[in-house]
């Protein structure tokens, strides 16, 4: 008999049996063990799917809300160059949000559901974006520290187990590098500028240091989602590991600027080849996550305002697409 004509289901069973696999859950585990990526149409445990939808949509929301603190400074950027740079950066953040939303959509949620969750305040996003950007130095601190911390997390996520998420991260990491460098460049201008400028840089570092450390999430012993995330290879390093690496990486950069961190306990620990440092105020972190940070209400109000103001565009585009009478959607 022609081998090509064997009943496909029969062959599949043989193939899986040859792999020593008896059911889809084992196949899923086998893929994770081999460091294979899980793709949208692959079988996956329901909790893995839910975990990813939550994490990726929160990540997307963070990119979108993250446009607001910096967007605040576009009209007041001190030079044409810095204005162009800031515009490009904020545009990138919008792009990152879009990559991530479609990655989440590949898991079966919809853009509308996610936007609704964001606009009604049901969804979470990174607590960092609920802090205000009070001075021009904050734009530098956000690019350098906040994007720097995000990169630390996102470099790890380039090897996350879900294919579309990993691919979005590869693209995002390439782009974030410019973000961090432009932020640090801005900080060098201030730190080596007039005393008033240097003071402004120090003030920004003082205010952003602890909120940035919070970005990695609660300590490992209190992190409710970490265990599964590590087990499923969604995350490959823990919150505390990433936070430690961030501090280690940032200190030489801070010293170069001649600035100091607002932490008297921070010192090099030769035994662990890393810095000892104070934990951020986790009570504050929880309060900000719950909606009581300095800017939570303002951020949500801004998102809702711009969404409402875009309603006529969505309506017009829908009608226009219909009028063209070309059905590209094919049900």
């Amino acid at each position: 008999m022609d081998k090509n004509r064997i009943n496909p289901i029969f062959v599949r069973t043989i193939t899986l049996k040859n792999m020593g696999v008896v059911n889809f859950e084992d196949l899923f585990e086998a893929k994770l063990a081999k460091n294979d990526m899980i793709e949208p149409k692959d079988w996956m445990p329901e909790n893995y799917r839910k975990h990813l939808i939550r994490q990726i949509s929160q990540h997307a929301h963070s990119e979108i809300v993250g446009m607001l603190p910096e967007g605040n400074w576009i009209t007041r950027a001190p030079s044409l160059r810095s204005k162009l740079v800031l515009l490009a950066k904020v545009q990138d953040e919008g792009g990152h949000g879009l990559y991530l939303y479609t990655a989440a959509e590949s898991l079966g949620t919809s853009r509308d559901e996610m936007l609704d969750a964001l606009l009604t305040g049901k969804a979470k996003y990174s607590s960092i974006f609920n802090y205000p950007t009070l001075t021009w130095a904050d734009v530098g601190a956000v690019g350098w520290l906040v994007d720097g911390a995000a990169i630390m997390n996102q470099v790890m996520l380039q090897r996350t187990s879900y294919g579309p998420y990993a691919r979005a991260m590869v693209r995002i990491c390439k782009e974030e590098s410019f973000h961090q460098r432009q932020g640090y460049e801005l900080m060098t201008h201030l730190a080596f500028g007039t005393p008033a400028q240097k003071e402004m840089a120090q003030d920004a570092l003082n205010r952003w240091w602890y909120p940035t450390l919070m970005m990695f999430g609660p300590p490992d012993i209190e992190s409710p989602n970490s265990e599964n995330a590590i087990k499923w290879r969604i995350k490959r390093e823990t919150n505390d590991q990433l936070r430690q690496r961030f501090v280690n990486q940032s200190m030489p950069q801070i010293e170069y600027l001649g600035l100091t961190v607002p932490d008297k306990n921070l010192k090099w620990n030769e035994a662990k080849k890393g810095y000892d440092f104070s934990e951020p105020d986790w009570t504050e972190f929880k309060a900000v996550i719950k909606g009581n940070g300095p800017c939570n209400k303002e951020r949500l109000a801004s998102r809702n305002k711009s969404h409402a103001e875009g309603a006529w565009v969505r309506e017009a585009a829908t009608v226009y697409a219909k009028k063209q009478n070309e059905n590209y959607e094919a049900a």
Binding site: K3, N4, I6, P8, I9, V11, R12, I14, T15, L16, E39, K41, D42, W43, Y328, E329, A330, A331
Partner: peptide, 23 residues
């Protein structure tokens, strides 16, 4: 390309679908 227009192979059938070229 409209996503709805994409026709894709199914991962569950990976073994049988590509089997003809294996040997």
């Amino acid at each position: 390309v409209p996503s709805a227009a994409i026709v894709a192979s199914s991962p569950e059938d990976m073994g049988s679908f590509f089997e003809p070229s294996n040997d």
